[in-house]
Design a binder for these strands. Structure first.
Length: 930
RNA sequence: GCCGGAGUGGCGAAAUGGCAGACGCGGCGGACUCAAAAUCCGUUGCCCGCAAGGGCGUGUGGGUUCAAGUCCCACCUCCGGCACCA
C-alpha cells in the first residue's frame, strides 16, 4: 500500500482540483497577469499523441509556477474541431461529423484531464460550438464591412469609403459594386484544382503531375467563384510589426519570406501599332513626359515588374504569362495556333507542376515585338509558363546575362545574351551568367555606376519620364477563404435572387442579430460531380430566405478550418458572453497572450492568419493591442525510439549500409545486436557490416507510435510529464525512450520514499522525517535548488530544473534525519512538474491542500554562497592542480594561494612566469617560458 | 538551389569565453537476500600504466585569445522549411 501508486493518487487529486475549482481563472486579473496558451488541438479520431503533452506540460509548469507566485493566470484549452478528417469519416461511415467530433473531443478531454493539466475547464470551447460559430461569423462580417485605406495603412468601415464621382453618378448598383470591390472579404473568380472523378476540389499539394495524388484521376483548373480575404493589404504591417515580438528568429524569418516583400520598378514597353513604329514611339514618349506614368496600363503597353531595373539595357526579350490579358493582342496571326495550344497545356498543369524547377523551360514566340523605353529598339515577346500571372504584372523583361531563369530560357531558345553588369572582382565574361551586383556596362548614361547607385537613380528617372516608377511587390497572395465542403462555418452572406430566381449579383450580410447561421441537417455530405458545395443541396427552408420583401439564396461555401483558430485566444477570456465576442474590459486586461507554445508546423499559416484578423479587429476598435501573441515558442518534435536498420541482399545475406543498393531490403536490428565501431554502428556478430541508426517520425505505418494512455498506465501521468520535460530542451527534436520514462519514474519513487515510510502497512511519514533545524549544508542545498528551479522555469529550461531536483534528492536520500524545513519547500517546487505526487506528499506532511496554490518558496541569497571555493590552477592553459581559497578572495590572494601550492610550485620551478591570469572565484592560469 | 537549426561518452543530454561530460539511461562491481526482483552504495569519455601518473578528447581544417564546445573564416554531414515570386 504505501508504495508510490500513481494510479491511485492521480485520479484522487484530479477530482479534488475539479471539486475545488482550483484552477478557475478570474474574470479580470488582480495584480500581475499572465496568459499562457497552447495551440489547441484538432481532435482527431486517434486521440492524443505523445507530441501533444510536450508543449502542454511546458505551459502547465509555467502556469502552475506563476499561480504559486501570486500571478493571475489564464490557462485555457479548447478544440479546433472543424475540418476535413471529420468530414471524410462522416462520408465513409454515414455518421454526421458533429457526432464523431463530439466523441473525439470527449476522448481528448479525458486524456488531457488524465495528465493533470491545470486548465480552467469552464472555459473549454470547440470552434464548432454554435455560440462560437456565431462570433466567427460576426468577425467575418467585420471583415466584410471593412476596406483598407492605404493612406493611413488602416482598415476602416466600408461606409467611409470615398466614392469617386463617376461611380456615384452611375447609380446605386455601381456604388454597391464599387464597395464590394474594396471590402477585405470579397468574391473573386479564382482557378481551383477540380477533380471530376473524385467530385472535389483539391489543394495544390494533392495534385501531382496533373493527376490526383489519390487515385491518379485527371485534374483540371477551372475558375470558380471564391471568397477571398484581402490579407495583402496588411502585408506591410504584418511584416513590419513582427519586429517587436518575442518570437524565434527562424519563425519571423519564415513569415517574412512568406510575405516576400521585394522592391524594384514597374516599366512600360510600348506595343507599337502596325507600321510607323519609330514615330509612334517618339509620340508615346512625348505624351508620357506630359502625362506621367499612368496608374493602370492601357492596352498599348506591356507593363513589367523587375527588381533589377539596373539591367534594363541587357533586355533581349520579354515574357508574358500564359494567362496574360494582352496575349491576344500580342499573338501574331502566324503564331496564334501555337500560342493557343501552349496556353491550354499550361492551364492543365497545377501550380506545383508549373513551378517544378527540374523541368525544362518551355515557351512560344508570340511573333510580336515591343519597344524598349530607353533604347527604342524592338524586343521580341514570348509566352512562357515560368512567368506567373499572379505575381507582379504577369510579364517580365528578360535579362539572360543577369538572371539564371532568363539565362536558361535564352540558352534553350537561342536568344541573345547581353552583358551589362561587370562583376566587382574581374572583367565581365560575355555570354555568361552573373546574377550579383557590380558595375554597369553599356548602359547609356548609367554606364560605370555601381548596382546600388544605379538602382537608387533609375526609379526616379523612369518616373520623371513617365516610363516607369519604383514599385513594391509581395509573394503573399490574397487568402482563398472558401471551401466546397460541409464541415465548416457557413458564410453569413445572402445572394439576391431576381424575379426569375436567378442570382442578381447583389449580396447582403446576414443581420448580426440572426447569427449564428447554423449548418443545415444533411444526410449526404459528399461532394457532387460538379464543384457545387454540399450545402447547395440543403433543404429549401435553409437555402432560401426572404428579407425586406426580396428573396435570397444563402452562400453555400463554407469557411476553411483556419477561421476558427484565428481568434479562439480571445474567446477563452470571455467564453460565455452572449452579447459580444469579448468584453472590451476583459480583453484589455488579459491580452496579449504572454506565452504561446505550439508546433512549428503553424509557423506561417495559422500565425499569419490570426495576426491578420487581429489587426483588422484592432483597426476597427474591437481589441486594444495590435498583436495577439507576445512570446512564441515552438516545441520540438518527438520522434520514435532509435532504430537500427541493416540491409539484406535479395539472396538473403547482409549488405553493409554504405554499399547497399536500391534492391537490398531494409530490416530492423535489435539494439543489443549492434555496437559502435569508430563512426558507425556495426553488427556485433559481423563487424564488417554497418547498420544505419536513426530515430524516425512517429507514424502508424512505421509502427513506432507511443500511446500516452499506455504510458500513463505503465508509469503514471507525472512520469510522462516529467519525462517529456527531461528529454532535452523544449525546442529540440528528440527521440522517445521508454527506458528514459522508467528513469524519471525512478526519481519520483525516490521522492516518494524521501517522505513516505514504504515499509509501513498504512500511509505514514518516513521515520527519517523530523523537525530538526536543517544544517547549513542542507540549507545551502535547498536554497540552491529553489534558485536554480525558479530561474530555469522562467527560461523554459525544464530539463536542467529537473536535473537539479534529482541532485537534491540524491543528497537527501542517505540522510538519517530529514528536516521538514527542507522537504516542504522541495515538495512545493516539485509541484508544477509532478503535481499529483506533490499534492499527496504535501498532504502527508500535514500541510493544507492544495500545494498547487501554495506560496512559491523564497530564496535566501546568503545560502547561495559558499565560504570557500576550489579554484583550478592552470599552467599554459592546462589543468595542473586545484587550490581552496575563501569565496571572497581577490585576484592577488588567489594567485598567492596557487603559488603556495607545493605541486604548482614544483612545476613552476625554474620557469619564467610571463603572465598570470587570476579570475577571482574562477581560476588561475600561469603563462610561462621554457 | 536558397533559408533556418543541429553535430559533445554506448544513448538522451549539461556547460555567463574559465575544471568538458552535471542529471538520467545503459554497463560494471558491491551490500541486502536461500535466490531473484526491488532498494541502497560505489564505479563508468578514450588510450598508456600494476600504480602514482601521463597523453588524447566537443564533425573537419584554419584563426583570434593567457584560455575556445562556446567567438571568427572555410568545409563536411544530418534534420527541417521554402522553392521559376522576375
Amino acid at each position: 500500500m504505501p508504495r508510490y501508486q500513481p494510479s491511485r493518487i492521480e485520479p484522487k487529486w484530479q477530482d479534488w482540483w475539479a471539486a475545488h475549482a482550483t484552477f478557475a481563472a478570474q474574470h479580470l486579473p488582480s495584480g500581475r497577469k499572465t496568459y499562457v496558451l497552447d495551440m489547441f488541438p484538432y481532435p482527431s479520431g486517434d486521440g492524443l499523441h505523445v507530441g501533444h503533452p510536450e508543449g502542454y506540460t511546458a505551459t502547465d509548469i509555467v502556469s502552475r509556477f506563476e499561480r504559486m507566485r501570486g500571478t493571475s493566470v489564464m490557462h485555457p484549452m479548447g478544440f479546433d474541431a472543424f475540418g476535413l478528417p471529420a468530414e471524410e469519416h462522416a462520408i465513409r461511415t454515414g455518421t454526421p461529423p458533429r457526432e464523431s467530433t463530439e466523441k473525439n473531443i470527449a476522448t481528448f478531454t479525458r486524456q488531457l484531464k488524465m495528465l493533470g493539466f491545470s486548465y480552467d475547464w469552464d472555459r473549454a470551447l470547440a470552434t464548432t460550438d454554435p455560440e462560437y460559430v456565431r462570433w466567427t461569423q460576426w468577425i467575418f462580417l467585420v471583415l466584410f464591412d471593412t476596406w483598407f485605406d492605404p493612406a493611413v495603412q488602416k482598415g476602416r468601415p466600408i461606409a467611409e469609403l470615398p466614392i469617386p464621382a463617376d461611380v456615384a453618378a452611375a447609380g446605386e448598383d455601381a456604388v454597391a459594386t464599387y464597395r464590394d470591390g474594396h471590402r477585405l472579404a470579397y468574391q473573386s473568380e479564382a482557378p481551383v484544382n477540380w477533380c471530376p472523378a473524385l467530385g472535389t476540389v483539391l489543394a495544390n499539394e494533392e495534385v501531382i503531375g496533373g493527376v490526383s495524388e489519390r487515385g491518379g484521376h485527371p485534374v483540371v483548373r477551372i475558375p470558380l467563384r471564391q471568397w477571398m480575404l484581402r490579407i495583402t493589404a496588411y502585408a506591410d504591417r504584418l511584416e513590419r510589426e513582427l519586429e517587436g515580438l518575442e518570437w524565434p528568429t527562424s519563425i519571423k524569418k519564415l513569415q517574412c519570406d512568406w510575405i516576400g516583400r521585394s522592391t524594384g520598378a514597374e516599366v512600360d514597353f510600348l506595343i507599337p501599332p502596325s507600321g510607323g513604329a519609330a514615330e509612334a514611339f517618339d509620340d508615346w514618349k512625348r505624351t508620357r513626359e506630359g502625362s506621367g506614368f499612368p496608374e493602370k496600363p492601357g492596352s498599348d503597353v506591356l507593363r513589367i515588374y523587375t527588381t533589377r531595373p539596373d539591367t534594363l539595357y541587357g533586355v533581349t526579350y520579354m515574357v508574358v504569362a500564359p494567362e496574360h490579358p494582352l496575349l491576344d493582342v500580342l499573338a501574331a496571326p502566324a503564331q496564334r495556333e501555337a500560342i493557343a495550344a501552349y496556353r491550354e497545356g499550361a492551364a492543365r498543369k497545377s501550380d506545383l507542376d508549373r513551378t517544378d524547377l527540374a523541368r525544362e523551360k518551355t515557351g512560344v514566340f508570340t511573333g510580336s515585338h515591343v519597344i524598349h523605353p530607353l533604347t527604342g529598339k524592338p524586343v521580341p515577346v514570348w509566352v512562357a509558363d515560368y512567368v506567373l500571372a499572379t505575381y507582379g504584372t504577369g510579364a517580365i523583361m528578360a535579362v539572360p546575362a543577369h538572371d539564371d531563369r532568363d539565362f536558361e530560357f535564352a540558352k534553350t531558345f537561342g536568344l541573345d545574351v547581353i552583358t551589362v553588369v561587370e562583376p566587382p572582382d574581374g572583367a565581365a565574361k560575355p555570354g555568361e551568367l552573373f546574377a550579383g551586383n557590380g558595375r554597369a556596362l553599356n548602359s547609356g548614361p548609367y554606364t560605370g555606376l555601381a548596382t546600388g547607385e544605379f538602382l537608387e537613380r533609375v526609379g526616379g528617372d523612369l518616373k520623371a519620364a513617365g516610363l516607369g516608377r519604383p514599385a513594391v511587390n509581395y509573394k503573399l497572395r490574397d487568402w482563398l477563404f472558401s471551401r466546397q465542403r460541409f464541415w465548416g462555418e457557413p458564410f453569413p452572406i445572402l445572394h439576391e435572387l431576381d424575379a426569375q430566381g436567378n442570382l442578381s449579383g447583389a449580396i447582403r450580410a446576414v443581420d448580426p442579430a440572426d447569427l449564428p447561421v447554423n449548418l443545415p441537417h444533411l444526410t449526404n455530405f459528399k461532394p457532387g460531380d460538379t464543384p457545387d458545395p454540399p450545402l447547395s443541396r440543403s433543404p429549401a427552408d435553409w437555402l432560401f430566405v426572404e428579407r425586406d420583401g426580396k428573396r435570397y439564396k444563402r452562400e453555400t461555401n463554407t469557411m476553411p478550418q483556419w477561421a476558427g483558430s484565428c481568434w479562439y485566444y480571445l474567446r477563452f477570456l470571455d467564453p460565455h458572453n452572449t452579447s459580444r465576442f469579448i468584453d472590451p474590459e476583459v480583453e484589455k486586461a488579459w491580452m496579449p497572450v504572454d506565452l504561446y507554445i505550439g508546433g512549428a508546423e503553424h509557423a506561417v499559416l495559422h500565425l499569419l492568419y490570426s495576426r491578420f484578423w487581429h489587426k483588422v479587429l484592432y483597426d476597427r476598435g474591437h481589441v486594444s493591442h495590435p498583436e495577439p501573441f507576445g512570446k512564441l515558442v515552438n516545441q520540438g518534435m518527438i520522434l520514435g525510439e532509435m532504430e537500427f536498420t541493416g540491409y539484406r541482399s535479395t539472396k538473403g545475406g547482409w549488405v553493409s549500409a554504405e554499399k547497399r543498393t536500391a534492391e537490398d531490403i531494409p530490416s530492423k536490428v535489435p539494439a543489443d545486436q549492434v555496437e559502435k565501431q569508430g563512426e558507425h554502428f556495426v553488427l556485433r556478430d559481423a563487424p564488417k557490416i554497418r547498420v544505419e541508426s536513426r530515430a524516425y517520425k512517429m507514424s502508424k505505418s512505421r509502427g513506432n507510435v507511443v500511446n500516452p494512455d499506455q504510458v500513463v498506465r505503465d508509469y503514471g501521468a507525472d512520469s510522462l510529464r516529467l519525462y517529456e520535460m527531461f528529454m532535452g530542451p523544449l525546442e529540440a527534436t528528440k527521440p522517445w525512450s521508454t527506458a528514459g520514462v522508467s528513469g524519471v519514474r525512478g526519481f519520483l519513487d525516490r521522492c516518494w520514499r524521501l517522505v513516505v515510510d514504504e515499509r509501513a502497512d498504512e500511509l505514514a511519514l518516513a521515520p527519517q522525517v523530523c523537525d530538526d533545524p536543517p544544517s547549513d549544508d542542507q540549507l545551502r542545498e535547498i536554497h540552491r535548488t529553489i534558485d536554480k528551479v525558479t530561474r530555469d522555469i522562467q527560461a523554459l529550461s525544464f530539463n536542467t530544473a529537473i536535473a537539479r531536483m534529482m541532485e537534491f534528492v540524491n543528497v537527501c536520500t542517505p540522510l538519517e534525519r530529514r528536516p521538514r524545513a527542507i522537504l516542504e519547500p522541495f515538495v512545493a517546487i516539485l509541484a508544477p512538474f509532478a503535481p499529483h505526487l506533490a499534492e499527496e506528499l504535501w498532504e502527508l506532511l500535514g500541510k493544507p491542500a492544495p500545494v498547487s496554490l501554495a506560496v512559491w518558496p523564497a530564496v535566501e541569497e546568503r545560502w547561495l554562497k559558499d565560504d570557500t571555493v576550489e579554484i583550478p590552477v592552470q599552467i599554459q592553459g592546462k589543468l595542473r592542480g586545484r587550490v581552496v581559497v575563501p569565496a571572497d578572495a581577490d585576484a592577488e590572494a588567489t594567485k598567492a594561494a596557487a603559488l603556495a601550492d607545493p605541486k604548482i610550485a614544483e612545476q613552476l620551478a625554474g620557469r619564467e612566469i610571463v603572465k598570470v591570469v587570476a579570475v577571482p572565484g574562477r581560476l588561475v592560469n600561469f603563462v610561462v617560458k621554457g
